[in-house]
Write a protein that binds this DNA or RNA. Sequence first.
DNA 1: CCCAGTACTTTGCATTGCAAGGTAGCTTAA
DNA 2: TTAAGCTACCTTGCAATGCAAAGTACTGGG
Lengths: 113, 113
Amino acid sequence: MEMNTEKVRSQMRKGVLEYCILSVIKNNDAYASDILDTLKEAKLIVVEGTLYPLLTRLKNEGLLHYRWEESASGPPRKYYGLTEIGQKFLNELDTTWKELVTAVELTTSKKSK
Amino acid sequence: MEMNTEKVRSQMRKGVLEYCILSVIKNNDAYASDILDTLKEAKLIVVEGTLYPLLTRLKNEGLLHYRWEESASGPPRKYYGLTEIGQKFLNELDTTWKELVTAVELTTSKKSK
DNA sequence: CCCAGTACTTTGCATTGCAAGGTAGCTTAA
DNA sequence: TTAAGCTACCTTGCAATGCAAAGTACTGGG
């Protein structure tokens, strides 16, 4: 009987994770911590254990590529960037997201008969 | 390497399912087919196997109640309505959804440095 | 009676976010 | 050079949950 909004919030977040991650990378090639920071700024909390496997999956699907880059302080970093396919896919996700927003507005704003 | 937008669309849908279902019921008490039709209209395709267990869960959480009602043609129907708790919860979801939309806009629209 | 239609329910599977723990490179300071 | 601390990446196991598919049951028409 726990009415946990956090649970639903997390559920909603799930659906847009890939979309947001690809968007962040589109703007600038980024490594995991960059992405985590950006998402955190936007209040889209994501943790390492979620992000790393997802990046790997996106790479395996051919949407991302990466290169190793030395760091001035600490271990080397994997910088991810969008491939051409990833670019196209992201464009489709833009549409998908907008359609979802429309659909939700439609559903939630409809007045009683 | 399958670049299936449908998969992501479905993923996005997941997150807002509860929210949309509660919204539909808020407008008018409804039984499963009503809800399916409304969501289908909005292009939020959902299937029986998803909806029924979800309705049961929402009922068990105290967000919905139901009554049986005879049908003019066919078996009786379970009409669901929002409880007071469900009402309150839905209001919170309104906020949660709006916050998510803001967060996504923020993330996807940010320009490169 | 059977058949078609409607409605509700259940089972099993696959996906996936997340908590938690692990490995390893690099820097700094004793 | 060793230890501590930070950063970065990776893995494992679990829990939640949408969905396909199959099952049950009630109703009315031929």
